[in-house]
Design a protein around this nucleic acid. Structure first.
Length: 867
RNA sequence: GCCUGGGUGGCGGAAUUGGUAGACGCAACGGACUUAAAAUCCGUCGGCUUAACGGCCGUGCCGGUUCGAUUCCGGCCCUAGGCACCA
């Protein structure tokens, strides 16, 4: 590498040169090496939307810092990159601009790949692939047919959002205020046959394995546990009066059964549908329910409504007639689609009962609520049964046991484990996705496509005009001749794009394998040692990927049970917003560059003007960078202005990885300033041209020992922050502190030069993961040769950390009153004496009795006094 | 509505196991250098109070545990993410 450490710091020049060198020598290309510890570092691959956004930059910088750190610690590090290339935006772009999704995607990938390279991420580009490559998706088609053979795949009807004008299925995102985003038509709920994967077969393992995943954030594990939603309870049957049928429900509270005063079923429940056949009011109600969204969030926020079915169930304990209602809040997708309502002890049942005047009967008495006040709401806690016939007066466990046993004996119920988790609906009625490898013969019987004729290629030549399913009109694709001479019709649905992202990490281990889905290399690299990505994936993507990996394990494709050893969830990147109220009630947003902000004396923003017309604009909240809020910062512009190192340094310094990061242009300036000043300090240091024979460990002056202690303390701190705490902001702060110490040390003797040389060599190595380009140049500038990426991470000299004198805080009754110096070896008693002797401490202890003295070794002395 | 986080100076954040609240940086202000500006360097920087030493208050709000609470517990407010077809 050429000697760049001359005159001015020019990031563009050095970064491009360093990157070219890495590329020419394939520095980041790796192979399996059983002699070294492997480290598989993975960042969630991007959807190729067009350009990188700041969220990508942040995500990939975190991954690159961790990768480079582990490589400097001697591990065999693999860091791959690829593209989650199927999805809705490509189809939308196709409809809007007339570009083909394949071409649009390819172009975006090319641009974004260049951006990633310009940011200096150490990826093994030889492993790159896009999920829309047939070489990739053929294997997921193959695996789908394996799962089909094993009975883990099935077809049944499920609801979709149907746009009656465009005659197409809409994603939840495409439904705005109940209307299709393009047509504006009221969206309907429609039941169509779709493909499902039996993730519920793995519910128990997906749940229990979480207990062993101690390197995952507790919040993510809790979210997954609640999503899987295991509950134990009683499945019981209520017979229906006259009709002779039965209504099955599930309850976790059999102890409240005597309080069941009505039943509620989902609008799609067969008995509701049946009852509506000769009841036009009921039919109308069911139709209204049908127009409601498929989104659970919206269903739960709706006003709770219902209608009686004019049917009665027989209470299995009391023989009482209880009315059956249909209710819009009962979900057909959970349990049996029917519930027994106990309004006294369930808040939602209570509200519904109040609204429709249904009886509320208290059957549980909690310790602190001897009387149930009906007007305040349900009492959902546990307690002792009352008004429950022969089962009255029992504690929860006893009541649960005896009621379950009684109903089991009478064959009216059985204990059951129930999960909230539903099977994974993988069918999508879209073009730009992986075709589902299924055919239907003339009788409509399904046939899985044989493995040796895969892939089922997604045809390129289709008509994309926004009308329904292009694949159903592509006759070359649609019609197939079977080997036995019969003809068949292909499935026209494609896979959910979560299908592709559920196993890409395994394929990165052996992307060139052309005869198998995976090979032995996957077992060398898997599991991923650290997986980094947005918190928004906490449940869906991460749960699907865990399930998929277990299914692959059971098919003998991998040996590990969990795909991701550690998970690091990254916060969003935000920026302030500026807007004016538009005519149609919608806000018009202005980008921060268009706005001039006026600050008060304290630096608080007080008002903002649009530069263009010098009139006021409103200052909005700080929100996630997005096109709609017009508050995005283009990483490319920053790279062009400051260089990749500054952008990387700022994104790591501004906040810990899990936090949302609030973007500040002036703070970016600060990171740039730090690199410039470090450059100048090392340039000046080099110019001293001092020859020193002093060994750093041999210095004796207090000042130099102190300086050297700062150097080795920084090594300890930064190492711990990167490897254990994943707190890159404090790691960088510690490096900045060390640089400040080195810069302010006002001596230029040869011994000082030697310590400074040691200090800068440490600083440059500690900075290498964050700002790899400038670090490489400074490393060479300090007289060292070779690739910094393969230089060992510094190790602290323990003797440099030793101290003789400690500072202790002295508190009186928990309030800080003094700082005292004591020898390291001081006993507890000696510390107490020094503390009590302090003048300011004495002001607060005089005339008081010392009741107790607490000494926390190395930290503080707390003197507790009183009268 | 349900599940899960978060709330600390003007701002981003620090305080790692209950032990000095505000590290590091930004902004702001004062000064040096300069014909001037930029850049750079030095200093101040939570509020109130004091001549000074120091003192009092202060980590969203209310209450509790403790010698000691940003940290633990209970309740509340605000805010972000997810809720199964955005990825």
């Amino acid at each position: 590498m050429q000697d760049f450490l001359k005159d001015r710091y020019d990031p563009q020049k050095i970064e491009v040169a360093v990157q070219k060198d890495w590329h020419d020598r394939e520095v980041f290309k790796v192979t399996e090496d059983p002699s070294r510890e492997k480290f598989y570092c993975l960042s969630m691959f991007p959807y190729p939307s067009g350009r990188l956004h700041m969220g990508h930059v942040r995500n990939y910088t975190i991954g690159d810092v961790i990768s480079r750190y582990h490589r400097m610690n001697g591990k065999n590090v693999m860091q791959p990159m690829g593209w989650d290339a199927f999805g809705l935006p490509a189809e939308n772009a196709a409809i809007e601009n007339g570009t083909h999704p394949a071409a649009w995607t390819k172009e975006n990938i090319a641009y974004m790949r260049d951006q990633l390279k310009r940011l200096g991420f150490g990826y093994d580009w030889s492993r790159e692939f896009a999920t829309c490559d047939p070489d990739y998706y053929r294997w997921e088609q193959w695996f789908f047919t394996k799962l089909y053979e094993q009975g883990l795949v099935y077809r049944k009807t499920a609801a979709v959002n149907w746009d009656p004008v465009d005659k197409t299925v809409l994603a939840n995102e495409q439904v705005i205020d109940g209307r299709g985003w393009r047509s504006g038509a009221l969206v309907e709920r429609k039941e169509i046959p779709q493909w499902f994967l039996k993730i519920t077969e793995y519910a128990e393992e997906l749940l229990s394995e979480l207990d062993t995943m101690d390197e995952w954030p507790a919040a993510v594990k809790t979210m997954q546990r609640n999503w899987i939603g295991k509950s134990e309870g009683l499945a019981l049957k209520f017979s229906i009066e006259n009709e002779g049928g039965e209504l099955e429900v599930f309850t976790t509270r059999p102890d409240t059964i005597f309080g069941a005063s009505y039943m509620a079923v989902a609008p799609e429940h067969p008995i509701a549908v049946q009852a509506a056949k000769n009841n036009s009011d009921l039919l109308t109600f069911l139709e209204v329910c049908k127009s409601q969204s498929t989104s659970e969030a919206l269903v739960e926020k709706m006003e709770k409504k219902g209608m009686p079915l004019d049917l009665y169930a027989i209470h299995p304990m009391t023989g009482e007639r209880i009315p059956i209602w249909v209710a819009n809040f009962v979900l057909m997708t959970y349990g049996t689609g029917a519930v027994m309502a106990v309004p006294a002890h369930d808040q939602r049942d209570w509200e519904f009962a109040k609204k429709y005047g249904l009886p509320i009967r208290q059957v549980i008495q909690t310790e602190d609520d001897s009387v149930l006040v009906n007007d305040l709401g349900a009492v959902s806690g546990y307690g002792v049964t009352v008004n429950s016939g022969e089962y009255s007066g029992l504690a929860f466990d006893k009541a649960y046991e005896s009621i379950c046993s009684h109903l089991e004996l009478k064959k009216l119920g059985h204990r059951q484990v129930q999960y909230r988790l539903r099977d994974w609906l993988v069918s999508r009625q879209r073009y730009w996705g992986c075709p589902i490898p299924i055919m239907y013969d003339d009788e409509g019987k399904e046939i899985a496509v044989a493995g040796d004729v895969l892939p089922v290629l997604l045809p390129k030549d289709v008509n994309l005009d926004g009308s329904p399913s292009p694949l159903s009109k592509a006759s070359d694709f649609l019609n197939v001749a079977l080997p036995d001479g019969r003809t068949a019709r292909r499935e026209t649905d494609t896979f959910d794009t979560f299908f592709e992202s559920s196993w890409y990490f395994s394929r990165f281990c052996c992307p060139d394998q052309s005869t198998k889905m995976l090979d032995e290399r996957a077992n060398y690299w898997m599991p991923v040692d650290i997986y980094i990505g947005g918190i928004e994936h906490a449940v869906l993507h991460l749960l699907y990927a865990r399930f998929f990996h277990k299914a692959m394990r059971d098919a003998g494709l991998v040996t590990s049970s969990e795909p991701f050893k550690r998970l690091l969830t990254q916060g969003m990147v935000c920026k302030e917003t500026y807007f004016r109220d538009g005519e149609n009630g919608r806000k018009k947003y202005f980008s921060p560059e268009q706005v001039e902000v006026e600050l008060d004396a304290k630096g608080r923003p007080v008002s903002a003007l649009l530069k263009e017309d010098q009139l006021a604009v409103n200052i909005g909240p700080v929100e996630k960078m997005s096109k709609s809020k017009n508050n995005g910062v283009d990483p490319q512009a920053l790279i062009d202005t400051y260089g990749a190192d500054t952008v990387r340094l700022y994104t790591m310094f501004a906040a810990p990885p899990e936090h949302t990061l609030e973007w500040s242009d002036s703070a970016v300036e600060g990171s740039s300033r730090f690199l410039k000043s470090l450059w100048r300090l090392i340039l000046d240091h080099k110019a001293e041209n001092s020859f020193s024979t002093t060994k750093p460990s041999a210095v004796t002056s207090d000042e130099l020992l102190g300086l050297r202690r700062h150097i080795h303390q920084a090594i300890v701190k930064v190492t711990d922050d990167i490897s254990r705490r994943y707190k890159f902001n404090t790691a960088i702060a510690a490096i900045m502190e060390l640089v400040n110490h080195l810069a302010r040390f006002d001596s230029h003797e040869s011994a000082t030069h030697a310590i400074r040389q040691e200090g800068f060599e440490v600083v440059v190595r500690l900075l290498a993961p964050f700002v790899p380009h400038v670090s490489q140049i400074l490393w060479n500038g300090l007289g060292q040769s070779g690739d910094l990426i393969d230089v060992s991470w510094p190790i602290e000299d323990k003797s440099a950390l030793e101290l003789d004198i400690l500072e202790l805080v002295v508190q009186v009754n928990g309030r800080k009153r003094a700082l005292v110096k004591v020898p390291v070896a001081a006993t507890k008693k000696e510390c107490e004496e020094v503390g009590l002797a302090d003048e300011n401490v004495a002001r607060f202890t005089i005339g008081q009795t010392v009741k107790k003295i607490i000494v926390v070794p190395g930290k503080l002395i707390n003197i507790v006094v009183g009268d």
